[in-house]
Design a protein around this nucleic acid. Structure first.
Lengths: 344, 344
DNA sequence: GTTAGCACTCGATAAAGCAGAGTGCTAACA
DNA sequence: TGTTAGCACTCTGCTTTATCGAGTGCTAAC
């Protein structure tokens, strides 16, 4: 049984109508939608074949058809005409993103917000991670006599700050020693070398200065730890409750999203080549909690390195034609904004 | 009709049983719970009187009783024995809070997390706001040749950072001018004076330096704006879905929480005197969306100033004896941690 | 290959019946 | 006067039954 042009038109019509209404689509209503003059019986025959081929399925014997995962996939790959955002929408998004304070975490939070807003799905973003990142710069900012803020910049443009308090005054002398220690031990090295153990051995060689220096170094280590860990940011989870077809799954889904590991596993199993978003529909997902959902995600790059992921999760019944391009666009913008920090 | 000791015992038993099971409590099961030997008929008579007095109500004519808002209130004020957290639990909370990076926003986020976790409700925290706050210190941290981080500290211990990029190099000369401008115009003044308008008039007098200086001042203004705005942080909203009695309200409630104004209105209507948490039960709430919910909140102080609010929202059927002390404790701890930044 | 006609399936909704928990009231009891 | 046993009554939740209608698959004719 081979795919014909008429079958394709019918499949596309079923997908689009179902996406729009959420109701199984019957042969009769299809006749109205399709441009050419055929009777409902003919359409019924074609639909039966599409079912047999695995593109459509029936919730129960005597109701209309809904697209299967395979049906959605065929639609996305062969039938769909992508619906790009208008320049106005793009401009709006750009200006919203500019509101954030510039550090990756807040940019990605904002991105998640926007994503959740335009897709009405749950949005997931991950903070950049780059195994090749090294410490580029460390600064000590005086806050009070015994309080300072440690600032750390990595080669991937990630900036972390951390406030710490010491038992005795942070004199210029102390600050200088701190800079020396950092320069000779950590700058140019990966953040992972900044372990507590390393700090302890260092402290031994510092003599009396160890007392005031240790908190500073610990703060730096905390900052380093924060850059290493890639965090998962969730936004708009409550959107999931709006989708009727997820009604019973919504809660289970939210619980699933709370656990970071499985999601990271999904993200790392798919490459982000060509900047084309990955689409995982229904049973194409590896976890049973996602069998009724669709994930669309895409990798953003800082400089030339694939650094993090940005995507959504929602019902399989979703406006693919609009959302896939949107996610693609946001991925590009985020990449550009975050790469900006890299240049000097 | 006056309250007797036996009535009080019955009321307490109804409240506690209902909190535990979520089912209306009947006279028969009460006889088992109450220590003294009475028949179900006697208890029924007492319950009828408690109903008449407004402490209990019936979901429908022929079912057990559940506490009314007034009933809960009487219980909280006269009958309940508060259940303090154990030192171990307190220690655990302290150490979790210490993980956060020290700035108020992240401390409060963490607090919200903990709160949501131990109460299984939605947690609300507000970032500190203090109309009397003035700019105490501003620092410029070099990141790249044309990138810098502006750090701002207020008299209330709030620290904000903001990264900015300029078109030309940030020389030592530029930095010095920046410090001079800031010192003579903004330090010691309220953050609200750092308006864009003010910056524009300033820029006019800077001549050629305006080009490189403006982005820095704008960044500072952004930081100032961030300290002024008190933000509402929500955590654990999805917990609301776990409560059967909120089933139909849960979504409406989440939508309500998204809008900040009404919540701020609630918070500002109640003082935080004595550090005793405010409890608003069911219809005691001013907004119709909260009629089926209970809010418990309390104000934390930085230094001596009441600065922000921290609380939960959940069903009226909630373990008051445990949660009220927990919230009280967290409020105190947050106050202490945030006040810490004040000292020099 | 297409279409009209028709019996059939199955979910959704409403109506009806039943069991059980719990009440309020009355009358008797200590 | 307070307490208790007894009983009729109410109301919910659950199950059963009936009905409706949309939509199908199949057959036979075009």
């Amino acid at each position: 049984m081979e795919m014909t042009e008429r079958k394709e038109k019918i499949l596309a019509a079923v997908v689009e109508k179902y996406i729009q209404t959420g109701e199984p689509v019957g042969s009769k209503s299809l006749v109205d939608i399709l441009g050419f003059p055929v009777s409902s019986a003919t359409v019924r025959n074609e639909m039966a074949e599409l079912s047999e081929m695995g593109y459509l399925e029936q919730p129960h014997t005597s109701s209309g058809r809904i697209p299967s995962s395979k049906g959605y996939r065929y639609y996305i790959e062969h039938l769909m005409t992508a619906y790009e955002m208008s320049p106005v929408e793009k401009g709006l998004i750009n200006s919203k993103l500019m509101e954030s304070s510039g550090d990756p975490q807040s940019v990605l939070e904002k991105t998640g917000n926007i994503l959740a807003d335009i897709t009405k799905c749950a949005a997931i973003t991950t903070t950049p991670s780059d195994v090749e990142a090294v410490i580029k710069k460390v600064e000590l900012v005086p806050i009070g006599t015994r309080t300072a803020m440690v600032v750390m910049l990595t080669s991937t443009g990630i900036l972390k700050t951390r406030v710490c308090r010491t038992v005795s005054e942070i004199t210029i002398d102390v600050a200088e020693s701190f800079y020396n220690i950092v320069k000779s031990n950590f700058v140019g090295k990966p953040a992972s070398e900044l372990s507590i153990a390393k700090i302890q051995t260092l402290a031994l060689s510092l003599g009396e200065k160890a007392l005031v220096m240790t908190p500073l170094l610990v703060a730096l280590s905390d900052a380093a730890k924060m850059t290493e860990r890639t965090e998962l940011l969730l936004e708009g989870q409550t959107n999931l409750l709006n989708h009727r077809e997820l009604e019973y799954n919504a809660f289970e889904l939210m619980e699933f999203l709370r656990r970071a590991e499985p999601l990271n596993k999904v993200f790392s199993s798919y490459s982000g080549k060509d900047g084309v978003p990955n689409v995982l529909i229904g049973n194409e997902n590896m976890f049973k909690e996602l069998q009724n959902s669709t994930m669309i995600f895409s990798k953003y790059s800082i400089g030339n390195h694939e650094s993090g992921t940005l995507g959504i999760i929602g019902p399989t019944r979703i406006d693919y034609a609009r959302l896939i391009p949107s996610i693609k666009y946001l991925t590009e913008v985020v990449g550009i904004i975050l790469s900006d920090n890299l240049e000097d």
